[in-house]
Computed example of a mutant assay.
Amino acid sequence: MRYRRLGRSALQVSALCLGTMNFGPRTSAPESFAILNAAVGAGINFVDTANQYGGQLGVGTTETIIGDWLAEDRSRRDKIVLATKVHEPMSEDVNDRGLSARHIQMACDASLKRLKTDHIDLYQMHHIDRAAPIEEIWQAMDHLRRQGKITYVGSSNFPGWKIAQANEKAIAARQLGLISEQSLYNLIERRAELEVIPACREYGLGVITWSPLAGGLLAGDAPDQGGRRQSDDMKRAASSRSAQLSQFASLCLDLGQSTSVVALAWLLHQDGVASTIIGPRTKAQLTSVLQAPEVTLNAEVLARIDAIFPACGPAPEAYAW
């Protein structure tokens, strides 16, 4: 496994981050434990979750599974960089959501309890909250840091302007600010290249990519093709992009790699990307992509990929004169 600095921080994280959204709703607790053990055994030290994950089993379920795994062997906690998120509704209570200082404090305490740990390494805002002043957010995050409950703060699904605003306020207060942005980014969805990734580079945030396989569109013949790829929406999307996907599959065949591995490797070749999230539903899905950080794509291959999945272009030139 290869490791990279997370943005301008000194923290080292694995190039592959274990996403856990399937834990609970699609993957049983025993199978989740097996995936966690295999990931750590393969050198993955970065585990990402969110307080809302749990699907039909209820919010908090995924954090609880991870907490039970950590409690099984207390030495595991020091081996991983643990990331979770705050923002999404946790109940019908009007204040049990968003980024008010009150909710941030209460949500963090609840996550710590479910995760059975005393601190979160990377506490991420799951979405922007237009009603919450950035000063209120930083006050809450600084309070949690002083309490030793969180170490770093990151964002997720933030637009470029919000990343700039948040870090300018942090700079003015002589604080570290955001060190990472978790963003939707893959070969099919490249709009993050317009504003988000340039903002991250400017302010020293490491980009953590989610949905690197575009919900399974880029997974090709990966093991266990159940789940979301069998939905009507995904079948329509695959049909509409059949020519692109066929060209990509041929390129990957020439390289002797699976489409999943090449899609992940491509992300890890992009400037500013610190880690890409893989969200395996089974242990087989995990092991099938572990070699991605070791795959080198030369300039010719990268150009061929760009020809299949064109970039948006730089901002503002891509949309302005």
Score class of each variant (00 low, 15 high):
residue 122 L to N: 13
residue 124 Q to W: 09
residue 125 M to K: 03
residue 125 M to S: 13
residue 127 H to V: 00
residue 129 D to A: 03
residue 129 D to I: 04
residue 130 R to P: 00
residue 132 A to P: 09
residue 135 E to S: 11
residue 135 E to D: 13
residue 136 E to F: 08
residue 136 E to A: 10
residue 137 I to R: 05
residue 137 I to T: 13
residue 137 I to K: 11
residue 138 W to Q: 12
residue 139 Q to R: 14
residue 140 A to E: 07
residue 142 D to N: 14
residue 143 H to F: 11
residue 143 H to G: 08
residue 144 L to V: 05
residue 147 Q to E: 15
residue 148 G to I: 11
residue 149 K to A: 00
residue 150 I to A: 01
residue 150 I to V: 14
residue 150 I to R: 06
residue 151 T to R: 15
residue 151 T to Y: 14
residue 152 Y to I: 03
residue 153 V to Q: 08
residue 153 V to N: 00
residue 154 G to S: 00
residue 156 S to F: 03
residue 156 S to M: 00
residue 156 S to K: 07
residue 157 N to Q: 09
residue 157 N to P: 01
residue 157 N to L: 05
residue 157 N to Y: 02
residue 158 F to Y: 15
residue 158 F to M: 12
residue 159 P to W: 05
residue 159 P to I: 02
residue 160 G to R: 05
residue 160 G to P: 01
residue 161 W to H: 07
residue 161 W to P: 03
residue 162 K to R: 15
residue 165 Q to E: 15
residue 166 A to E: 08
residue 167 N to H: 04
residue 168 E to T: 08
residue 168 E to F: 13
residue 168 E to W: 13
residue 170 A to P: 09
residue 170 A to C: 06
residue 174 R to D: 15
residue 175 Q to N: 12
residue 178 L to Q: 11
residue 180 S to Q: 06
residue 180 S to N: 06
residue 181 E to M: 06
residue 181 E to A: 01
residue 182 Q to T: 08
residue 183 S to P: 00
residue 184 L to G: 07
residue 184 L to Q: 14
residue 185 Y to T: 08
residue 186 N to Q: 07
residue 186 N to P: 03
residue 186 N to H: 14
residue 186 N to A: 00
residue 187 L to Q: 12
residue 187 L to Y: 09
residue 190 R to K: 13
